[in-house]
């Protein structure tokens, strides 16, 4: 079992190794034609010194993780709450659901200038951007998920006298978890984009992976930029696998309400 797992991990790593080697060879032989394109070895060296030399990488990473944790958790809590509310109340639904579905299609970055004016150039703006990025997708998916819960499952709860909040927690939320989890995944994707964009544009911010990439521009240090890019890729993958994928496995896959992939 564990042997298979290691084997699978190696297989998963293989494409990255191949691309890395090809990339290294192309840059070293000067085939790319771009002088400022760093080779993987440059990126690695750069990462090494950011970690052990100047010690700043963790500070950048922790700042970003702090922001995304606060912003995303807010988005999850309020998104699910608003989604439930809109699915239960016809009037609220009529008024707000078109607004939400419209706002989903607004790229989160478009909010940043507005927020910079309203909320200042610091952390608050970035966290708010992250929140908005996640919120609409989660609220919308929760709402539409609850609307699709099997009516007879709701009846089965009603017949034993379950209604109100108890109905929400014992039937409506578990019954719409497939859609809610899809919203959570969509939401975290949007939140990451919002984080990086927000950090780049909020002038008072000094730390953060987005900031690190942006600042490297002033030194033409493309290796540092790539360190940032790779770090973001790895972090979001880890969060997805560790939290959302696991949540999926423990709930909707175990319950057989979604096909295992």
């Amino acid at each position: 079992m564990t042997k298979d797992k290691i084997k699978q991990d190696l297989i998963n790593l293989f494409p990255f190794v191949v691309v890395g080697i090809l990339w290294e060879v192309i840059v070293q032989l000067g085939l790319s034609g771009i002088k400022t394109l760093p080779a993987p070895s440059d990126i690695f060296r750069s990462a090494w010194s950011l970690i052990w030399g100047s010690n700043v990488l963790f500070h950048h990473l922790l700042s970003s993780l702090y922001r995304i944790t606060v912003g995303y958790l807010l988005a999850v809590t309020l998104g699910i709450a608003v989604g439930v509310l809109l699915s239960l109340n016809k009037t609220l639904h009529m008024i707000f659901s078109p607004v939400i579905s419209l706002l989903i299609s607004v790229p989160t970055l478009a909010w940043v200038p507005v927020l910079l004016v309203i909320m200042g150039l610091g952390d608050r703006t970035v966290i708010m951007t992250i929140f908005l990025g996640g919120f609409f997708a989660i609220a919308y998916n929760t709402m539409s998920g609850i609307e699709m819960v099997n009516q007879n499952q709701i009846h089965a709860a009603e017949i034993v006298g379950v209604k109100g909040l108890r109905l929400v927690f014992s039937v409506l939320i578990p019954g719409s978890l497939v859609s809610i989890i899809a919203g959570l995944r969509l939401g975290i994707g949007y939140s990451w984009r919002a984080l990086v964009g927000g950090e780049m544009l909020a002038a008072m911010i000094q730390w953060g992976v987005g900031k690190m990439i942006y600042q490297a521009r002033f030194f033409n240090d493309t290796a540092v930029m790539f360190v940032g890019l790779i770090l973001i890729g790895i972090s979001s993958t880890i969060i997805d696998q560790l939290l959302l994928r696991r949540l999926e496995r423990w709930t909707i896959e175990k319950w057989g309400v979604v096909a295992e992939n």
Binding site: N150, N152, Q153, A156, P174, G175, L177, T251, W255, G256
Partner: peptide
């Protein structure tokens, strides 16, 4: 008719 069990 459709059982309507709670799959969770």
């Amino acid at each position: 008719q459709d059982y309507a069990l709670f799959p969770w």
